[in-house]
Design a protein around this nucleic acid. Structure first.
Length: 150
DNA sequence: GCCAACGTTGGC
DNA sequence: GCCAACGTTGGC
């Protein structure tokens, strides 16, 4: 089983929204590297950290489970959606999404600042300069280490 | 295929 | 709101 970290802006969709919905499709990924990881490496049963980005206190706020593997993201064909992609061919969809299910909230937010302060996490893409992936792999060791901070 | 211009992400 | 970093676009 693999581990992941997935970013979302809490103003758009936060951990409390997922807690309420229990399960949701992770739409709006429009980055090829992320799409390829979701398609090739993300499997049902994998666990992921829910990360709040672009907010007053960016950090890890919860844990969720991948419950459906990559399939076409319907928002790419919806002209009303901000994720609409007119260049995507319905017979060969360009963008994919997975479904996630709420597992739990962390007892507290493990902030980005805190993650950065631990040299043990130096290889975590999140804390590496210039990283902009909205979905990234987390090693077993980093997963355990981060949960240990809770 | 190069690369300048432009758009987006996301921390601060 | 600023801006660094990086991805994408499109002219050539």
């Amino acid at each position: 089983m693999a581990y992941w970290l997935m970013k979302s802006e809490p103003d758009v969709y936060g951990i409390d929204d997922l807690k309420r919905d229990r399960r949701e499709c992770w739409d709006g990924v429009r980055n090829y590297q992320v799409r390829n990881m979701m398609r090739d490496d993300m499997r049902k049963g994998d666990l992921a950290f829910f990360y709040h980005s672009n907010c007053p206190e960016p950090g890890i706020v919860g844990v969720m489970r991948i419950v459906r593997e990559a399939y076409p993201d319907h928002t790419q064909f919806d002209p009303q959606s901000k994720y609409y992609d007119p260049k995507s061919d319905p017979d060969d969809p360009r963008w994919l999404m997975v479904d996630v299910a709420y597992k739990r909230k962390l007892k507290r937010t493990i902030t980005l600042a805190e993650l950065k302060a631990h040299p043990e996490l130096g290889d975590l893409p999140l804390v590496r300069r210039g990283n902009r992936l909205s979905v990234m792999p987390v090693t077993d060791a980093d997963w355990e280490f981060i949960l240990g901070l809770e």
